[in-house]
Design a protein around this nucleic acid. Sequence first.
DNA 1: TTTTGGGG
Length: 482
Amino acid sequence: MSSTAPAAVAAPKKARAAKKATPSKDAAPKAKRGESQRYKYSELNKASLTSGEAQHIYGVIIDATFPYKTNQDRYICSLKIVDPSLYIKSQKGTGDSSDFATVVLYAKRFEDLPIITRLGDIIRVHRATLRLYNGQRQFNANIFYNSSWAVFPQEGAGHGGASHSGKNYSFEKSEDATLANIRKWAQGYFQQYNVVSSDLYVPLAKAAGQKSDFDVVAKVNQVFELDEYTNELRLRDGSGAQTWNVLALKLKFPNVHAGDVVRIRSATYDETSTQKKVLLLSHYSNILTVPANSKLAKEVKAKAGDEKLDKAAINGVNATVLTEVDKKHAGLPVHSLLDLFHNIETDKEIQSKDTFRTQFYVTKIESADVKEWTKSYDKKTKKGASFKGQKGNANAIYQVQFLVKDVSTQFNSNTYKVLLYTHDGLGANFFNTPADNLYTNDKAAKKLQEYSGLLTKFNSWVDAVVERRNGFYFIKDTKIAF
DNA sequence: TTTTGGGG
């Protein structure tokens, strides 16, 4: 269920040749002699209202439904778009909220409609007819008749990354500038304005009071893998203390990542959920990524703040969380062990980072002998030697390996290693007591023995920040809070 | 080849 893979782009010349053999719906109206531009694009706010003439338009997408089925044989994708002529209501002297035109694409097949995954992407529509619907400019396009669409990613140059309706589509040389211009304008617009103004969504704190469906703008603090097919997104927007949850099929929403700010088009409050706050989606609901460098994404990230580890969410209400992470990692999204040890091999988003927050339980600690948790570290050979039989505590460091699991990995047979190696200072405060010779410091050894019991106790969890070095994960900025 | 449904 993905958008059509971009086919080779037909050059205008080729498209013209093809028209003779098989009429293409995207073929041009007859060009006048000497006129190189076949499509003249209308500004969203200038296109004539009285004329029934079809319009060709470019717009920046600020909202979209997922393509959905209506009756027997109609599929619809409804979008909100803006351009330099139509983007904010103050242009009409009515405040700073978003202004936009809507686009309604009609098709007979699901695959003839675009799947929009990001705000800020550019859509081009050929042969859309304009009308006024509920006071909004609405461009209607029948893909099953003679209209066509193409979607260009906001990131990138040219039209190479386009998806489009139909087997072929045309892209004229003169459109390079049109596309580049609207991309540039969109970037500035997303940096200076919130784009999705507050009247277009509901703070999570008010979600429970909504009578009908509503939209949300929130940060994805965690993508939690419930099973092979389903992610549960943990959402925060800073409007309340609680984290909200929404189920998102991996196949339907493959591009949502922890740390993203998203706009959810159409959610309802799940009144039946008592343990945690849940949003429900419909078949027409969509999850759209807000550009990371936009004003809106930055504001929401700042407000969403720290993830409160949700005991009920990780393993039932009886779970105990033994640790706390440093405040400076407030807002760091949580990654599962599956992400850290498996998905990192293929996921560029994860590969690009080296500090993660993760939550696990400890199945075993090595060494089993607490007295061997500390070593005397030789900086030259980079090796730790046992304190057994030694006096003093020269160059004492912790060298402890935790064998860990979490919900995402509980059904496979692997265990995963997370290291507390403090030779570079990482994780030095984890046990709240400096590394020492545990053969001579009985008090510290006794305390660590207690921690050992706590860490491996059933339903005890560790909420940790880890740093990836040479493929290993080292605990840092985390300490036991008991 | 169409007049749809559109916040569904």
